[in-house]
Write a protein that binds this DNA or RNA. Structure first.
Lengths: 258, 258
DNA sequence: AACGCAGTTCAGCAATACCGAACAGGGGGG
DNA sequence: CCCCCCTGTTCGGTATTGCTGAACTGCGTT
């Protein structure tokens, strides 16, 4: 059913991504659990496709530039991301905070767009950042709006502790998700990074399924103080609705089923 | 020698990247020249690896989020890029212009790092941008410092015309590359984008081979006016030397051979 | 010189990839 | 309702391709 050699090639890429910067054939063979000549053939193939490069001096292999091009192509062809750009800029302007747009992948949230805060010094681009769902507003918004089966599976899984504020009590998380569904947005209070907070709301597509979330992130002292917090929440929710409509969602098309 | 099924999987990714946003099994089979069930098996495998996603409504496939993670991993494990960050920020501060760091891939230059101009309104991140080598300073710096065989091959290849200033005369390009080797930096005068200019210098690694280039980009009216142009060129060249040293290059370790 | 290590090549073989045929589902038209 | 078309998915036989043990090559160290 699944093509074994393609799976093995993907394993090699994963190892190079996780254990880099450079690995030799022998070590890769051990990590992937495949014979050296097999790994060599796969590496040669991946090299021909630009996904892997070999260092001439050491003979070791590292990831190749085709992956950057493919990663960018993912962003360019990802409709949520392409349609979110203008809405995210608008949200950043209105709230004065940075804006992230994310999707759920496995039990993590993946940032696919980041609009910088209008004012401010150097900001590090977070596109490609991966965050445990339970520690951020984006993740909570996504899970609250997603299928019940997904929610239960994710709640049964690992709930990482990133700060002292990270929540691992399943009853409390369940209550938070219920609150998200009631008010239409999620709040993050230093669960991911000390000092940082977030407010996010889910985004739906034409079929009514949740396909992502959009939210603002900033210092907790600025973001979670009333009445600013409430104002921001309204603005975030409104932006999420506009983006959803842009994706073809109707007013009543929100769905929780599979 | 090369693993056919891995090559086919890569072809599918390339098609999805180039012809997206979504393609069906039948169309992909035609484009890749493979039987439908084979493409289906490959897609299923790529989906299991997160490199491809299927739209539940239409049954069509698009690129998946693992590619974004792998693209970011490429940047994180790419030594030129990781070591260039601080130098690029310094160069942007000293020149007041945006800084790009790039590598040569095929006959294009791939931007692997972009430090924003200190002053300025919205800037679009160009990491992942791919530019024909002959139309930009980064490309000319790279090719001038690279192996003669590469230079001849690239000169014999396609020389795209992006603007009225793009150079396609091989004798003129050859003279420009000779000038780059003499003065140590390359200049771009609207060959890529009307109104834009650039100054770039090659970066070498411990073995003495050119591994990338660093340069500034900005409006032609600002960049190519003396004595600013000369000052910038000196600063760019100096930064390239510092970055090269950071990568282990010695003062005399520049090499042009294979 | 000998040794060890790691990337690369080779060739035999069987397992896996491949693909024609068929199926399943959805949409459109009469 | 029936038929047709199209496209994603499944199935099973087979041969080709992927796999791997053994050997080779090159480099660095003692």
């Amino acid at each position: 059913m699944l093509v074994q050699s393609v799976r093995r090639a993907a394993s090699i890429l994963r190892e190079l991504a996780a254990a880099g910067p450079r690995l030799g054939v022998t070590e890769l063979a051990e990590r992937v659990g495949v014979a050296k000549p097999t790994v060599h053939a796969l590496l040669r193939t991946l090299e021909a496709e630009g996904m892997v490069e070999q260092d001439a001096e050491t003979g070791k292999y590292r990831l190749g530039s085709s992956l950057l091009l493919l990663g960018n192509a993912y962003l360019d062809t990802h409709e949520l991301r392409t349609r979110s750009v203008t809405w995210a800029d608008g949200l950043a302007t209105r709230t004065g905070e940075a804006v992230w747009v994310a999707v759920l992948t496995g039990d993590h949230v993946l940032v696919v767009h980041h609009a910088f805060r209008p004012e401010g010094a150097v900001q590090i681009l977070e596109v490609g950042a991966s965050i445990p769902w339970s520690t951020c507003a984006l993740g909570k918004a996504l899970v609250a709006a997603g299928p019940i089966a997904d929610q239960e599976r994710l709640l049964a899984g690992e709930l990482p502790v990133l700060t002292g504020a990270s929540v691992t009590d399943r009853a409390e998380l369940t209550a938070q998700l219920e609150q998200v569904r009631r008010v239409g947005y999620a709040v993050e209070d230093q669960e991911s990074t000390l000092g940082d907070a977030g407010i996010a709301a889910p985004v739906f597509d034409r079929s009514g399924h949740v396909v992502g979330a959009i939210g603002i992130v900033g210092p907790v002292e600025r973001l979670l103080v009333e009445p600013v917090r409430q104002d921001h929440a309204v603005t975030v929710r409104e932006t999420a609705r506009n983006l959803s409509r842009d994706l073809g969602a109707t007013r009543t098309s929100h769905r929780r089923g599979a």
